[in-house]
Design a protein around this nucleic acid. Sequence first.
DNA 1: TTCTATTGACCATCTTTGACTATTATAGCG
DNA 2: CGCTATAATAGTCAAAGATGGTCAATAGAA
Lengths: 160, 160
Amino acid sequence: MAQLSDSIEHFIKDLMTEDAHVELRRNELAQHFGCAPSQINYVLATRFSVDHGYIIESRRGGGGYVRIVRMQTRGESNLLNILLNRVGNSVDEETAVAIISNLRERDMVTDSEAALMRAAVSRNALALPISAKDVLRAAVFRNMLVQVFKNIEEGKRHDV
Amino acid sequence: MAQLSDSIEHFIKDLMTEDAHVELRRNELAQHFGCAPSQINYVLATRFSVDHGYIIESRRGGGGYVRIVRMQTRGESNLLNILLNRVGNSVDEETAVAIISNLRERDMVTDSEAALMRAAVSRNALALPISAKDVLRAAVFRNMLVQVFKNIEEGKRHDV
DNA sequence: TTCTATTGACCATCTTTGACTATTATAGCG
DNA sequence: CGCTATAATAGTCAAAGATGGTCAATAGAA
């Protein structure tokens, strides 16, 4: 069944056969397919999620865009999902630190990056008068994990 | 998608590759880009703020000008204190992002590190059912700032 | 029925413009 | 020379324009 969503999905994937990322105008794409703009979001959410190995970035306003970035196609994208799952909605510092060490051992982050991540999830960073520290840490950490994997795919690790 | 604002930003930064400051006529620049003069102010406000590491000086009337100066600091430990102070107990995302881009421009963090930091302070990371997001962001961010400087100190930036 | 897909109304964010304001230099006047 | 009018600049701010995001209701497929 050539659903609209499927067509849009294939259209985008065709655009990505060369490059690991595309940038497009949500409204243009919607117009091209004669559908509501929010349909594009639906496709992105259901077919280009982190689980599927993609990351979406976007910007509103004049000159706005939606960028779709493909992450690993091999075992590691699976690793990201495992880690995100492990983290879930709440992690303690010990676990987070362990995961970071693991990423370092796999050489997926540099020493500096690992240190930065530890800084962000440390007790100290989250020493606030709120009780949900683990929840918070998980939210921050998840975001950073996704970022790490995106960097790897974009080949941005060996910069400067 | 070279936005007008982006073009103007790059134009100005190109002018500054040599010198740490440029002086220009607002109206001339606006005419060069075929836009309203106030557009220039918009670019200055959004891309050349103090948090981005620039200072704007200007003068009206005949022979008026706009001068853009890249801030310089004596020694990095001093900068750390300035930034920690700036962050204080609460920062909004915009400011945090500006500071991160400032660190990047000074080549004090790599692209990956900057991206990690952005991930940690993003709205998304802190999308929690608590109201004190800015406070929280400040806490996380302060910790990362300290770490950045520590990384530099330890000479660990130029890692594989 | 239940899961997936579509749409539309309403929201958030970023950019660009224009009308109005503020400041400074200079030419002309007394 | 001192004052004033005018011209030449730049600044502010709010409105309009240009995008994209969310979510709940509805429709369609399995």
